[in-house]
C-alpha cells in the first residue's frame, strides 16, 4: 500500500482549525459584537484606520494567512460533514470544496494586493 497524499489537505485543515479556533472568535467579537453594541467605539473600525492597518505588508501577510488557512479548513470540514450526512460522492464534493477554497485564496490575494 502506498502512503497517502491526504496530509496535503489535512495539514491545511489542521492548521486552519487551530487558527480559526483562536482568532475567528476574536474577530467575530470585535466586528460583530463589540463595535455594534458600543463596547468599543466606532472609530475602531473606521475606514482610514483599517486601511492603514491592512496596507502594512506585515499585517497584509497575517490577514492572508488567516483567510487562506480558514478557507482550506472550511473546505475540508465541509467535505467531511457531507460524508457524515451520508452524501456518498466524496470525489465530487472534495473537488467543489477545494475549488471554492482555491478561488477564495486567489480572491484574497487579488484584493489584498490592490490595497
Amino acid at each position: 500500500m502506498a502512503k497517502s497524499n491526504k496530509p496535503i489537505v489535512w495539514g491545511l485543515f489542521a492548521a486552519g482549525g487551530t487558527i480559526t479556533a483562536f482568532l475567528t472568535p476574536v474577530m467575530i467579537f470585535v466586528t460583530g459584537l463589540a463595535v455594534p453594541f458600543g463596547i468599543m467605539g466606532p472609530e475602531v473600525l473606521a475606514y482610514d484606520r483599517i486601511h492603514d492597518f491592512v496596507a502594512n505588508w506585515f499585517w497584509k501577510l497575517v490577514l492572508f494567512g488567516i483567510i487562506f488557512f480558514s478557507l482550506w479548513h472550511a473546505a475540508h470540514r465541509f467535505r467531511i460533514t457531507m460524508h457524515d450526512f451520508g452524501v456518498r460522492a466524496d470525489r465530487v464534493v472534495a473537488k467543489i470544496s477545494y475549488l471554492l477554497a482555491a478561488l477564495g485564496t486567489l480572491g484574497a490575494i487579488v484584493l489584498l494586493l490592490r490595497i
Partner: peptide, 17 residues
C-alpha cells in the same frame, strides 16, 4: 508501522466521528 498507518486505509480513512 507507517507503511500501514500512513496509507488511505490507515489513519486517513478516519473521519473523526
Amino acid at each position: 508501522r507507517q507503511e500501514v498507518v500512513a496509507t488511505d486505509e490507515g489513519v486517513w480513512e478516519c473521519s473523526f466521528v
